[in-house]
Design a binder for these strands. Structure first.
Lengths: 140, 140
DNA sequence: GTAGTTATTGCAAGAACTTGCAATAAGGGT
DNA sequence: ACCCTTATTGCAAGTTCTTGCAATAACTAC
């Protein structure tokens, strides 16, 4: 589990604390590699730290999101799903089969700049989920 | 309430039925003008049709979405919010104050084409919600 | 109008998520 | 090593959302 403790200084420097619960959740997400729903995270975290509770998982995910350590995205059903923050990317999910792929953020750079100019909003930076039909399903 | 009944033929031609529940929900959304959460829709619908139940509201919203009569979007907290389907547009929501504005779809046309080329996916068409910081909050 | 078909609803139970508050424990100071 | 402060957790209760199934009612055909 020690592989996730490298995050501790990041939190401490901002006045927050590293706890066993946060460590376990980061650990679960690091080893998952993909997106996980809160309840999946809860189940896996409980294997490593049986005392952890559901509210803590939800609050921790929100906390880690605000601090940039994990990234939320919308599942095809509209709910949040979480993954360890890595290089910026987005998703396209197939309306038919539910499968998804990642899209490099570079493709959206221009759009973000256009939007900021057009709207006056700053720091636009959401992780987006597009819906479409994947090649397999389109040809079926 | 009769102003929403123009949708009936659209549904019937696809083998579905127009019911008082669907009519009321469409009516509520038409008069709201903006986005409403499922529970707000439920509250307002119950004033016009006291017998309506929560599961029906959720199922109806999903049904109307699939049939293109309403459009879901993500609230700043990640949950779905619904509005009557009109001309295509997206949203930018302020991370600080929660306020939002609409963005014409025209601005995203290019991106959608780029994404379809790059990914092989077809019919990409999701209603997007960007997060940013609005001019007011940025200057505060 | 009446009867038949079946899409749709309501009910009831359950799963997912949120919130307030008292108890705990992380990290800083001594 | 110990105490103090307060960020964080667990608990418990509440709200929001989902699902299966039997009962209802919209539409079609006669």
């Amino acid at each position: 589990m020690s592989c996730a403790s490298e995050y501790a200084p990041q939190l401490r420097s901002r006045g927050f604390r590293m706890t066993s619960q946060r460590l376990v959740i980061l650990h679960v997400l690091q080893h998952a590699g993909t997106h996980l729903s809160p309840s999946e995270i809860y189940k896996q975290a409980r294997r490593e730290l049986p005392g952890i509770t559901e509210p803590t998982v939800y609050r921790t995910l929100e906390f880690l999101t605000e601090n940039g350590l994990v990234r939320p995205s919308h599942s095809s059903h509209g709910h949040f799903t979480y993954q360890i923050a890595r290089e910026d990317h987005h998703h396209i999910i197939c309306r038919a089969c539910g499968g998804g792929i990642e899209v490099a953020h570079a493709l959206l750079e221009n759009l973000y700049q256009t939007l900021e100019k057009a709207s006056g909003y700053r720091k636009i930076g959401s992780h987006l989920t597009f819906l479409g039909v994947c090649p397999k399903c389109a040809s079926a």
